[in-house]
């Protein structure tokens, strides 16, 4: 009865999630993805892999939390997780923006200070000649 999905989709989802995990690992190893952002991706891929092997798991969990159709649980939790992660990324971007601004300002002030020092030094050396 519960076999309303075929083994074909199970195989496809296993392959896709494994490929995804492999790709994420490569990104981290190459230093293109930092571990703190990778945690989300690694954990969600591991969940994907678990549920693509353990097909009954979805039904069991859906039943536990009182959702009648397992796919609805998948959509709801996936959308929820994506929303939260998007919010997290917006916060990260905002912080980066602020830090970037502070650094540029600091650099401009430092440049001004160095130019002042250099011009004083130049005057000193011309006066000495």
């Amino acid at each position: 009865m519960e076999q309303y999905y075929s083994y074909r989709i199970q195989l496809i989802s296993i392959i896709v999630s494994l490929a995804f995990l492999f790709y994420i690992s490569r990104l981290i190893i190459k230093g293109k993805l930092r571990e703190e952002y990778a945690i989300f991706w690694v954990i969600s891929t591991i969940l994907l892999i678990i549920f693509s092997f353990w097909r009954r798991g979805l039904d069991i969990i859906a039943h536990l939390v009182g959702v009648y159709l397992a796919p609805n649980l998948v959509f709801t939790s996936a959308i929820f997780a994506i929303l939260i992660y998007l919010l997290h990324l917006s916060i990260v971007v905002s912080q980066l923006h602020d830090k970037n601004k502070i650094m540029s300002q600091e650099l401009a002030l430092l440049k001004e200070k160095i130019m002042k020092i250099e011009s004083i030094e130049n005057k000193d050396s011309t006066n000495n000649q």
Binding site: S25, E36, V42
Partner: peptide, 17 residues
């Protein structure tokens, strides 16, 4: 908990890298 997950993951990937 975050610390443990992050550090364990980082150790694994530092090893690979």
């Amino acid at each position: 908990l975050y610390y443990m997950i992050k550090v364990s993951l980082a150790i694994f990937y530092t090893y690979l890298r």
